[in-house]
Design a protein around this nucleic acid. Structure first.
Length: 490
RNA sequence: GGUCACGUCGUCUAGUGGUUAGGACUCCUGGUUUUCAUCCAGGCAAUCGCGGGUUCGACUCCCGCCGUGAUCACCA
């Protein structure tokens, strides 16, 4: 065998194989991230395969939602819908002939048979098993004579129950007992395969080397191992992932717990970098105390053997914290590039303003954002004059002690001073503010607090000289004058 | 009920016989000429699920128990 052939043989191929039954919530997304990382770190192939055999649960448009989510978070697939590849088609409903062909191999080998039992009869068997406090096994009721299989009849795998050993990359060496192996349905009455059969055929024909999936499939391993054996297939590596738990209770996170679509977070102003970082590190760490990982870092550092065994609770607070970290990191790396991503997050009033102006605002406010969505509530006063609310002044701890007279005087002095400034820049403003402090004899908390409130009437804002420098002079003076007037009127 | 998996601060976790059980999120306190946030310094917080062993010594090894979850579909 040539070196090239050996390398080809060793090529890592992973896949993400969702069902188009709706959006991908964050609980599921992680099982796309890990196989992606493993494929990329081995210069392998990452395949997207759509498992659409359940026609009853099929949701129109779900495939687009899935693609959108993967693209947003940066998991580009090498083969799959829109991309093609050598192992297509990538929709299971288009692979029906392949499943039938493989199923026929099983029939020929005497390892599959048509199931003539009516479903209500099976339901009775099941009840009986449950009454006897036993796990239900169809093979205990296996009919003696079965009709020849033809389309329209469910086809069952014929189990060969025995101890079956395998190695899981996360959970270690395992043995499946005979009682876990049953005559499972591999082709449904509608002619489409069940997951139990389809994934095995697909993974084999697509050359998948590592299967990543939730640990809920662990109890089915006995059946899968039996099918691999009956088909003469070498099983791939198994990587079962612990569940992500809902914020409360101990159940795995699901849509019923309000698990949002991953892309809903995009609308909230969560960055894909943060989401990827967060999900990858939910149940995995590299053993160091690092917290911030880019996609490239993850590709470099991810390792299957450091995946946690226990389920991790989904904690949105940490995601939000990470997002703040990423906003700061990305701004420092490339402010304009991050700014370009804020388009949809500005308050309505900002619409008429230029990008230059908005960028100035962004540059002084970015480091107090937790999400880009905060832009909407935190920057309003840069675009529209705030409503004068004297109660905010009166309730201020430092300003309470000043009389109306003193407040007006302070503002008048400020207006006069700022009016005379030769230049309207942060440095000049900073100096002017310091001089005012001396001239008025007020404490910083009083003078700066008063000016800050007068121009923003917001609970918080960036440093005063920065805020003033972005808001133009005319406007800043007008706002202060408005406050003076408001007091005069009383 | 059978089978399987899991069990370290509230949460995410480090840790593989000897550690004051470490870090991060949250929360609290103080500092950075106003506020908020950042940042910095500090603090609260885990008898390592419980009980037995093995050992000079156990979060770490063994056994039992308990708890939690998954699974037992013509869903994936």
């Amino acid at each position: 065998m040539s070196m090239r052939a050996i390398l080809t043989d060793m090529k890592v191929v992973t896949r993400f194989a969702p069902s188009p039954t709706g959006y991908i919530h964050i609980g599921n997304l992680r099982s796309a991230i890990y196989p992606y990382l493993v494929a990329k770190q081995n210069e392998g192939t990452f395949i997207l395969r759509i498992e659409d055999t359940d026609r009853a649960r099929y949701v129109e448009g779900a495939t687009d939602l899935i693609k959108d989510t993967l693209q947003w978070i940066g998991l580009d697939w090498d083969e799959g819908p829109d991309k093609g590849g050598d192992h297509g088609p990538y929709f299971q409903t288009q692979r029906q002939e392949i499943y039938i062909e493989w199923a026929k191999k099983l029939i020929a080998a005497g390892r599959a048979y048509a199931d003539p039992t009516p479903s209500d009869q099976i339901a009775k068997y099941r009840e009986e098993a449950s009454k006897n406090k036993q796990a239900f096994l169809y093979r205990n009721y296996r009919p003696e004579n079965t009709p020849e299989w033809e389309p329209g009849m469910p086809l069952r795998f014929k189990a060969d129950p025995k101890e079956r050993k395998y190695h899981d990359e996360v959970f270690g060496d395992k043995v499946m007992l005979p009682e876990t192996q049953d005559d499972i349905i591999i082709i449904k009455a509608d002619g489409l395969p069940t997951y139990n059969f389809a994934h095995i055929v697909d993974d084999a024909t697509m050359g998948i080397t590592h299967i990543f999936r939730g640990q809920e499939y662990l109890p089915s391993m006995g059946n899968y191992l039996a099918i691999y054996e009956a088909l003469g297939l070498e099983p791939p590596k198994f990587v079962h992932l612990p569940h992500i738990l809902a914020p409360t209770g101990n159940k795995k996170l699901g849509k019923r717990d309000g698990a949002k679509s991953a892309v809903d977070y995009r609308a909230d102003g969560i960055l894909p970098e943060a989401m990827l970082n967060f999900l990858a590190c939910l149940g995995w760490n590299d053993g160091t105390e690092d917290e911030l990982y880019s996609k490239e870092d993850l590709i470099k550092k991810f390792s299957i053997n450091r995946i946690q065994h226990a389920g991790a609770r989904y904690d949105e607070q940490k995601l939000i914290w990470l997002n703040g970290q990423w906003i700061r990191k990305l701004f420092q790396e490339n402010p304009k590039a991050l700014f370009a991503r804020t388009k949809d997050f500005w308050p309505e009033a900002a619409a008429k303003y230029s990008d230059e102006y908005k960028f100035q605002v962004f540059a002084i406010i970015y480091d107090r954002l937790k999400t880009l969505g905060d832009l909407k509530t935190m920057t309003e006063y840069f675009f529209i004059d705030p409503t004068v609310d004297l109660s905010m002044v009166e309730q201020n701890k430092a300003l309470k002690k000043l009389s109306e007279r003193e407040i007006q005087d302070a503002l008048r002095q400020t207006v006069d001073k700022l009016k005379s400034l030769e230049e309207w820049s942060p440095e000049i403003l900073q100096n002017a503010l310091n001089e005012l402090l001396e001239n008025t004899g007020l404490k910083p908390a009083q003078l700066f607090g008063l000016i800050r409130l007068s121009i923003s009437f917001a609970p918080f804002s960036p440093a005063l000289h920065d805020t003033l420098s972005v808001i133009n002079r005319e406007r800043a003076l007008a706002r202060m004058n408005a406050v003076i007037t408001a007091y005069t009127r009383d």
